[in-house]
């Protein structure tokens, strides 16, 4: 059931996950709440977490997996310490979303949907963040907006995040 039995902290995680599931046990309606809390606990939603949730709530693994892959909020892969959300809204797209992602790829060898091996950054593409005047723009950690990006500006931005 557990993907990585050698990980000593797994037993503790299983117990904590059970505590998250307990109020919703046998109640499929609690799926999104449980997934949100589980992701906060584990950092992402690996298969063993999904199975534990499916069995706890009395839904199939298919149901759980379908919901997770529908919402971009949920992640199947480990998340980095910092989340880079590159805007691909119309204005940013026109002004250079591709330049931004290419630059990040060159700097960090990181493609959208991936996390760096040192767990520092996760990169994702998002729809309009409402900063069209700053296009092309990205948000880091859901709060810091960095706009009017150019290739030579991006390394300095990334250096702020350890």
């Amino acid at each position: 059931m557990v993907a990585c039995a050698s990980n000593a902290s797994n037993d503790e995680l299983i117990k904590q996950l059970d505590k998250i599931i307990d109020p919703y046990r046998g109640n499929p309606g609690g799926l999104i709440q449980v997934l949100t809390k589980a992701q906060n606990l584990v950092g992402y939603l690996p298969k063993w977490v999904q199975i534990q949730i499916a069995e706890g709530l009395g839904v199939s693994l298919q149901e759980v997996y379908g919901v997770i892959t529908f919402y971009t909020f949920f992640s199947l892969i480990p998340r980095g310490r910092h989340k880079i959300s590159v805007c691909a809204g119309t204005a940013c797209y026109v002004k250079g979303t591709k330049m931004v992602t290419t630059t990040i790829k060159d700097l960090l060898d990181l493609k959208p949907g991936q996390t760096t091996p040192d767990s520092r950054f996760t990169l994702e593409i998002v729809r309009c963040i409402g900063a069209c005047g700053l296009a092309p723009a990205m948000i880091i950690d859901g709060k810091d907006v960095h706009g009017r990006l150019e290739p030579e500006l991006i390394p300095a931005v990334l250096e702020q995040y350890a």
């Binding site: 199939s60 997996y65 379908g66 892959t69 529908f70």
Partner: peptide, 8 residues
């Protein structure tokens, strides 16, 4: 329930 719609 062997099938689901995954991704979007």
């Amino acid at each position: 329930q062997a099938l689901c719609a995954e991704n979007r």
